[in-house]
Amino acid sequence: MTQPLLEVEDLHVEFRTRDGVAKVLNGVSYHVSAGETLAVLGESGSGKSVTAQTIMGILDMPPAFITKGTIKFRGEDLLEKSADERREVRGEGIAMIFQDALSALNPVFTVGFQIEEQLKVRRGMSKADARKRAVELLDQVKIPNAKGRISDYPHQFSGGMRQRAMIAMSLALDPELLIADEPTTALDVTVQAQIMDLLAEIQKERDMGMILITHDLGVVADVADRISVMYAGRIVEHADVYELFRAPGHPYTESLLESLPRLDLKGQELKTIKGLPPSLTNIPPGCPFNPRCPRAFDRCVSEVPAVHNLGMGRTSRCHIAEEVVARG
């Protein structure tokens, strides 16, 4: 087996605020290889985006503190590198599509300028060559009349077109690994499908690794190879996409799948997960999901579940993981 592109191991991050210490990541571990798509699932506040930002090196100053763990890219620990060395990895090694393209793009510069700038600074291209490459990138992400639209500002693009422009910016330096943080947020279903198809097509062409951060199980089913499910800053389940949908190994994953709308349940009330995710400044003892878990028992309240190996690279942080899988 070849070495993964990225290996995150036992990553801990906390935010030290006036209201207390928020333990945002509590031992996150996952990996992704070239040509592979890892989906990271979970409710808002579970730590998905914080993990991505830590990997990118844009979350390394107060009030955020990385207290433990390693982030290895091609075998080298990024946390041991200087700020300048991390900057060299960003863009060419690892790139990121941010959640809200309208916020991520600078409103006072044209879309073309924002793509060209990194090509001139990082690749030493002339203005003419950078403009030509920027047009090619916009054309690659299927923006109609790329040559004419390159001088437009972000507000002149539709939501789907802005997201395509963000993808073009992320691909400009030919990254080996792409982190897509909620790339289809606030887009209609048709545009969502187009964006995901586009990412899959580009990934196949470049043999690029991809981490897809989302809360949309429907998107995940079509594009992911493996899934890591997060809750309260922990990976509670990790599995092959087919195995996870066939038989979830954690009550939280089980509850997420049960909350999906299904055609065969037409007219029935949609199931929901009761309660709210815990405050990260006051995570409950034992399993953090226990206040909302329909299967919780005494041990869940008093003891943090260990990682259970369920075989074939599948793991679950649940005291009764084998029982949950068997019932699935």
Results as ranks from 00 to 15, higher is better:
residue 328 G to C: 01
residue 156 Q to T: 10
residue 241 V to A: 15
residue 274 K to A: 15
residue 50 V to L: 07
residue 299 R to K: 14
residue 114 Q to M: 03
residue 242 Y to L: 14
residue 100 D to R: 07
residue 243 E to V: 03
residue 262 R to T: 13
residue 113 F to L: 10
residue 207 D to W: 01
residue 205 E to C: 04
residue 271 K to Q: 14
residue 146 A to W: 12
residue 297 F to L: 09
residue 45 G to F: 07
residue 91 G to L: 01
residue 94 I to A: 01
residue 133 R to G: 02
residue 47 G to A: 09
residue 258 E to W: 06
residue 225 D to T: 06
residue 17 T to E: 12
residue 146 A to H: 10
residue 11 L to A: 03
residue 300 C to F: 02
residue 163 Q to F: 03
residue 70 T to I: 01
residue 180 A to K: 02
residue 299 R to W: 00
residue 82 S to W: 01
residue 259 S to H: 13
residue 1 M to I: 00
residue 225 D to A: 13
residue 60 D to Q: 06
residue 208 M to E: 01
residue 227 I to G: 06
residue 279 S to H: 12
residue 254 E to N: 07
residue 208 M to G: 02
residue 25 L to N: 09
residue 58 I to A: 08
residue 167 I to T: 00
residue 279 S to T: 09
residue 11 L to S: 02
residue 55 I to R: 06
residue 323 E to W: 04
residue 263 L to H: 11
residue 92 E to P: 00
residue 34 A to C: 05
residue 314 R to I: 10
residue 211 I to R: 04
residue 262 R to G: 14
residue 62 P to K: 07
residue 261 P to D: 11
residue 223 V to R: 05
residue 112 G to A: 10
residue 225 D to W: 09
residue 81 K to P: 01
residue 35 G to T: 01
residue 315 T to K: 09
residue 74 R to S: 14
residue 223 V to T: 08
residue 46 S to A: 15
residue 5 L to H: 01
residue 13 V to A: 05
residue 199 L to R: 00
residue 218 G to W: 09
residue 154 P to S: 11
residue 55 I to N: 04
residue 249 G to Y: 04
residue 288 P to I: 07
residue 283 I to W: 13
residue 165 A to W: 02
residue 285 P to L: 07
residue 30 Y to M: 13
residue 243 E to W: 03
residue 61 M to H: 14
residue 207 D to H: 15
residue 156 Q to I: 08
residue 110 T to N: 11
residue 242 Y to T: 14
residue 182 E to V: 04
residue 121 V to Q: 11
residue 173 L to G: 01
residue 106 N to C: 12
residue 85 E to K: 14
residue 259 S to E: 09
residue 127 K to N: 03
residue 310 L to Q: 10
residue 277 P to C: 12
residue 158 S to N: 13
residue 142 K to W: 08
residue 295 R to Y: 13
residue 44 S to P: 06
residue 140 Q to E: 11
residue 116 E to A: 08
residue 174 D to H: 03
residue 317 R to F: 08
residue 267 G to P: 11
residue 91 G to H: 01
residue 37 T to E: 06
residue 32 V to C: 09
residue 62 P to C: 06
residue 40 V to T: 06
residue 87 R to A: 13
residue 126 S to Y: 00
residue 316 S to V: 03
residue 303 E to S: 08
residue 231 Y to D: 12
residue 33 S to G: 11
residue 111 V to C: 14
residue 85 E to I: 05
residue 81 K to C: 05
residue 69 G to N: 04
residue 272 T to I: 12
residue 76 E to V: 14
residue 113 F to C: 08
residue 285 P to G: 02
residue 150 I to L: 15
residue 318 C to K: 06
residue 56 M to T: 01
residue 243 E to Q: 15
residue 285 P to N: 07
residue 145 N to H: 15
residue 93 G to S: 04
residue 21 V to K: 06
residue 228 S to A: 15
residue 205 E to F: 03
residue 323 E to R: 12
residue 325 V to S: 06
residue 148 G to P: 14
residue 146 A to N: 12
residue 287 C to H: 12
residue 244 L to N: 10
residue 318 C to Q: 06
residue 71 I to A: 09
residue 188 D to M: 13
residue 148 G to V: 15
residue 266 K to Y: 12
residue 195 I to L: 07
residue 295 R to T: 05
residue 297 F to D: 14
residue 313 G to L: 09
residue 23 K to W: 05
residue 286 G to N: 02
residue 52 A to T: 02
residue 98 F to A: 07
residue 201 E to Q: 02
residue 198 L to V: 00
residue 291 P to L: 14
residue 140 Q to T: 12
residue 303 E to W: 00
residue 40 V to S: 06
residue 109 F to M: 13
residue 15 F to I: 01
residue 70 T to W: 05
residue 283 I to Q: 13
